[in-house]
């Protein structure tokens, strides 16, 4: 067993989101929800992070950014799509500049629905992600 599940560090990237989910991600850190209880830290640096939380859909211009961030994260890593836009494009699905959900660009492990996703469901999704993280660690450990 690893300690990944006890100390998941998170990086948040805002795709083409409306801010709704973003501020809910931030709200998770604050006294009402206080995710640091679970050892979750919102680090701003992909190289330190275990979980990539993306809000909002992908558009033409942020595709390379998302790929870059994902590539700079170290194994094992998990991607969580927060909110309906990150899942499928949501209300903006039909916009000309929206390519759809995050899974168009990088593999997504957990989808969190909602517009905007509520802090409770975000925490729930992250906890789901921890299981995936542990699994990936096992696979990754074998490779090593």
């Amino acid at each position: 067993m690893s300690y990944l599940a006890k100390s998941p560090w998170l990086i948040h990237y805002d795709g083409s989101s409306c801010n709704g989910c973003d501020i809910e991600v931030l709200a998770c850190l604050t006294p009402m929800y206080d995710v640091e209880r679970f050892g979750i830290i919102n680090t701003g640096n992909p190289k330190h992070a275990d979980i990539l939380a993306i809000t909002g859909s992908v558009n033409e211009q942020n595709i390379p950014i998302i790929k870059n961030i994902y590539d700079q994260m170290l194994e094992p890593k998990v991607v969580i799509a927060i909110g309906i836009c990150a899942t499928s494009g949501g209300i903006f699905r039909e916009c000309y500049n929206v390519q759809g959900g995050v899974d168009q660009v990088i593999p997504v492990d957990v989808y969190i629905p909602g517009c905007a996703a509520r802090p409770e469901s975000i925490i729930d999704g992250v906890v789901k992600g921890l299981g995936v993280l542990e699994e990936k660690y096992k696979k990754y450990g074998k490779k090593r």
Partner: peptide, 19 residues
């Protein structure tokens, strides 16, 4: 593993160029 440097996600190459 040798990885590119951090440039706020704007990397165009590993070390020196960004968009």
């Amino acid at each position: 593993k040798i990885v590119p440097v951090y440039m706020g996600g704007g990397n165009l190459d590993a070390y020196t160029k960004f968009q």
